[in-house]
Nucleic acid binder design. Structure first.
Length: 547
RNA sequence: GGCGCUAUCGUCUAGGGGUUAGGACGUGAGAUUCUCAAUCUUAAAACACGGGUUCGAUUCCCGUUAGCGCUACCA
């Protein structure tokens, strides 16, 4: 026995849509297996469905993989890089010419035969099978056609498909996730390898369809030609596998190992789809999920560490411990809550500057009235600087160039420090930060919970007292000022606790709950001073009470 | 209809002939706080059912049930 060669695995998506979490997980497991074993990870684009394939999807797909941290050793050229590897081409559409010679070989060796059956005849067989509770497989009628009959049909120009002769013995293969799997030959039937002109194929007219090889045939040849040793894919391919195994047998090629990954389901136990919310990688990205969170979650969905306890892994940590033997065969329900937990975890760990960049994009999209922050050319004033410096924590002017921008970045970093821990994913940030950025007084009053709080007599008194103090106050407001007011109002009215704070909080932030006043007030006043279009504390209370 | 795959807390899972069946998310309670989030502590929560095998099965075998997939000259 020679030493076992390094594994070669492939991820073979069709560019017919956005990369879906299920496929992404398949890609991830392939990648992890390759990296773990020191093997090769190959990307092959199955773009032969001319009708549905789009070049833009192909690009997006590669971008999504890249974003997740999955790179490939061989694959189509991308992003200016030439295609790598000596097993190309890596786009199936560029391989079409390859298959004919293999079909000739099978025909010549008598391992495949021409089938002249019409659609109607096949349909009739199927109905008959249903009536007799048998499997819906081809009877093999054209297997035993005499040479004369074949010549005659050919001469008559009858369209034909090419079918593989399935030998009458069980078709079994080894699955690294499920163990040995076996299919009886009679439940498989002689599969079509090459379509006839009557068959029709996606994107082709009936006449063009003649001679077009079928998916099961093409993948098998591609996998064999690319020296794929381990086929890791979704479990919807299990029933295709016996046909593929028969093709390997017919050519005398070594049968690879298989690993069929279970389906990912939605909370209702149906196959995960757009119906359940976000499912494509690019959507998760837009929503402000971190790639490491998604990759970690996907790794955990159907696989667990040996200790049964560790839950958080970087890709680098995953590589040495990942194994297909530990992959669970049962279907898994996609749990958005757990993904969110992981995302919060990684958000806490992530470099603040990186988070700031991602967050800024979200603000630009959702609050164009206030963001972008850094483009303004307005100058700061002496008063503004005073506000920045005297709040706690102060923002000091300490950079000679780009000063306003530097100050704003500092402010933004503090805003994020306050609100990022409160979100599951970054696109929730603009809404969460509304207490600082500003709010609509009317809709704040209309909120049912707010309305209930505001309806109380005590709330009216508090707001009246507060407005009075705001009016006589000059200059900006500090948390100490605010504390002082609350103390005075409590002394004057006897109102305290929630009855005191909730109305005040609504007047200031539009919501009855949120971060500490100590944090909010400096951010508001500093934001106002930085000309961010944020209404100051005094103004917003006056506005609110005046409504 | 046929064939195949699957079955441990609500969810993801660990485990494995004798265990207090472990962890995580989520949920409940408590601490903290005017409140929310975060954080910490804590609680509740599972071996689908029926037969075997066995001194003993959640674990092994067989059925049942349920879910899912394939059943095409789609990919």
């Amino acid at each position: 026995m020679t030493t076992t060669p390094k594994p070669r695995v492939r991820f073979a998506p069709s560019p017919t849509g956005l990369l879906h979490v299920g496929n992404a997980r398949t890609a991830l497991y392939n990648w992890l297996f390759a990296r773990h074993t020191g093997g090769q990870f190959i990307l092959r684009i199955e773009d032969t469905d001319l009708e549905r394939s789009q070049a833009s999807y192909e690009t997006q797909l590669m971008e999504d993989l890249h974003w997740l941290g999955i790179n490939w050793d061989e694959g189509p050229s991308w992003d200016g890089l030439p295609g790598e590897g000596d097993h190309g081409p890596y786009r199936q559409s560029e391989r079409l010419a390859l298959y004919a010679e293999y079909t000739e070989r099978l025909l010549a060796e008598g391992k495949a035969y021409r089938c002249f059956c019409t659609q109607e005849e096949l349909e009739a067989e199927r109905t008959h099978a249903t009536q007799h509770h048998g499997p819906h497989v081809y009877s093999g009628r054209c297997r035993s056609l005499s040479q004369d009959a074949i010549e005659q049909n050919l001469a008559a120009g009858k369209p034909y498909a090419v079918r593989l002769k399935i030998e009458d013995r069980p078709l079994r293969f080894h699955d690294m996730v499920r163990g040995s799997v076996e299919f009886a030959a009679e439940t498989v039937g002689d599969p079509v390898l090459v379509r006839s002109a009557i068959g029709g194929a996606a994107g082709l007219s009936k006449n063009e369809a003649g001679g077009v090889p079928v998916y099961n045939y093409v993948v098998t040849i591609d996998d064999a030609l690319m020296d794929i040793t381990h086929v890791i894919r979704g479990d919807d391919h299990i029933s295709n596998t016996p046909k593929q195994v028969a093709i390997y047998h017919a050519f005398g090629w070594p049968v690879p190992e298989f690993a069929h990954l279970s389906t990912i389901l939605g909370p209702d136990r149906e196959r995960l789809s757009k119906r359940h919310g976000a499912t494509s990688i690019s959507t998760f990205r837009q929503m402000g999920y971190l790639p490491e969170a998604l990759a970690n979650y996907l790794a955990l969905l159907g696989w667990g560490a040996e200790d049964g306890k560790t839950e958080t892994f970087t890709l680098a940590e995953l590589v040495p411990i990942f194994s297909l033997e530990r992959v669970t065969p049962s279907p898994a329900i996609f749990d958005f809550d757990k993904l969110n937990w992981l995302n919060r975890y990684y958000l806490k760990l992530a470099d603040p500057e990186r988070v700031a960049k991602l967050a800024e994009r979200q603000f630009c999209q959702h609050r164009p009235d206030i963001f972008p922050l850094w483009s303004s050319s307005e100058l700061y004033t002496a008063e503004a600087l005073a506000v920045l410096a005297s709040q706690d924590p102060p923002i000091h002017l300490n950079r000679p160039s780009n000063t306003l921008i530097a100050l704003r970045k500092e402010w933004f970093a503090r805003l994020l420090a306050l609100f990022v821990p409160a979100v599951d994913h970054l696109d929730q940030l603009p809404a969460k930060a509304a207490p600082v950025l500003g709010f609509n007084p009317e809709s704040a009053r209309r909120d049912p919970e707010n309305a209930a709080i505001l309806a109380a007599d005590s709330a009216r008194s508090v707001l009246g007292e507060l407005a009075g103090r705001v009016r006589t106050h000059s200059g900006f407001v500090t948390p100490d000022d605010f504390k002082e007011w609350m103390k005075e109002i409590q002394a004057a009215t006897g109102i305290k606790g929630k009855e005191l704070y909730h109305p005040a909080r609504i007047a200031l932030t539009g919501a009855h709950s949120g971060p500490d006043f100590d944090k909010i007030i400096p951010l508001i006043e500093q934001g106002t001073a930085l000309a961010l279009g944020i209404t100051g504390v005094r103004e917003r209370i006056e506005q609110f009470v005046g409504v």
